[in-house]
């Protein structure tokens, strides 16, 4: 379309202004503040330039690296379980079933629920005194005493370091497995029918078709789903904030929670910005990798 030179920028202006103010300015602030000692609530005139001291502190800070490790533990289990369950569900339900619309609607639901509410629900389910989970574990344990040795008894779910980690993993798997399921299902339904039919006629078993044909053809989709979940793990904060607040001790304090607490509990905005920078760099790197596999510009020939 032939236009005046300025016109395209005018159309882009509102969106770019919002992106600049809403995303670029905070990034710029993170870089700027990481060179300062500045506390929450102080006027800007009280800020003290520190040089690279915040970065040195970050490098040597056991709290930060422990929370990075916690994020990896949480992320490893969450992503592994969600991929396994989500992919199995998609393979199982690939064939059209009666009532597909109904089931599809049900599985979309967790994705739409506010993370805060997910946290509140699981806090209630896992409550040591009133929680339903403990009640039924106890019931089963009383009915079949042998099972008591296998954990069928009351637990203080959110009060024990290991169980608190298990709890936040369970709530995340509950909410996000449908996301993996939907992406993989869309991928499966986009596979070329003639290849599948040829393999079927050649007598390939369901297992061989899945393992040797479908999953390899879905490699890109699986990688994208995996990367998007990994990125979300680093962004995740709300459910953990509501369920455990990082505790007991620091057992569930993931990196984004350490960031939050440095800023608003220790009120150390300068150092918090340094952590924010670390988190942003991690996420930008993941986004770049994600772009290699799913670039909206790639399949548009004219870009």
């Amino acid at each position: 379309m032939r236009t005046n030179k300025v016109v395209p920028y005018l159309f882009l202006l509102p969106a770019l202004a919002i992106l600049a103010l809403g995303l670029m300015v905070p990034l710029y602030n993170a870089v700027l503040l990481s060179f300062y000692d500045w506390n929450f609530g102080q006027p800007w005139s009280a800020a003290r330039p520190l040089g690279f001291a915040n970065f040195e502190r970050l490098w040597n800070d056991p709290v930060v690296w422990r929370s990075v490790r916690t994020t990896f533990v949480f992320g490893f289990w969450v992503v592994t379980l969600e991929m396994l369950i989500g992919v199995s569900m998609a393979l199982l339900l690939e064939k059209a079933v009666r009532g597909a619309t109904f089931f599809r609607t049900i599985f979309v639901m967790p994705l739409m629920i506010a993370p805060v509410v997910v946290g509140l629900i699981w806090r209630y389910l896992l409550d040591a005194r009133n929680g339903i989970v403990n009640f039924y574990l106890l019931q089963i344990g009383e009915a079949v005493p042998v099972l008591q040795n296998f954990g069928f008894k009351a637990h203080t779910w959110l009060g024990d370091p290991t169980l608190a980690m298990v709890s936040i993993i369970v709530s995340d798997v509950w909410q996000w497995t449908p996301f993996v399921f939907m992406i993989v299902l869309a991928g499966l339904q986009g596979l070329p029918g003639d290849v599948m039919e040829a393999a079927y006629i050649d007598g390939a078993s369901w297992w061989r078709m899945t393992w040797h044909i479908k999953l390899p053809m879905l490699r890109n989709i699986l990688l994208i789903a995996l990367l998007m979940r990994v990125i979300d793990v680093f962004r995740a904060l709300e459910v953990i904030f509501v369920m455990t607040g990082g505790g007991p001790g620091s057992s569930t304090r993931v990196l984004s929670l350490t960031l939050f607490q440095t800023a608003f509990t220790s009120r150390d905005l300068g150092y918090a910005s340094t952590i924010a920078l670390l988190l942003s760099v991690i996420l930008i790197v993941f986004s770049l990798v994600l772009l290699l596999f799913s670039n909206p510009l790639k399949d548009k020939a004219d870009f």
Binding site: L23, M24, P26, A30, W38, R235, F260, L269
Partner: peptide, 22 residues
């Protein structure tokens, strides 16, 4: 646009709140 889209809300909150409050 595609690269900066994953910046988490926590980062936004931390890096603007000081100026906001001040």
């Amino acid at each position: 646009t595609l690269v900066i889209r994953m910046i988490p809300p926590a980062v936004l909150a931390v890096t603007v709140i000081g100026f906001w409050i001040a």
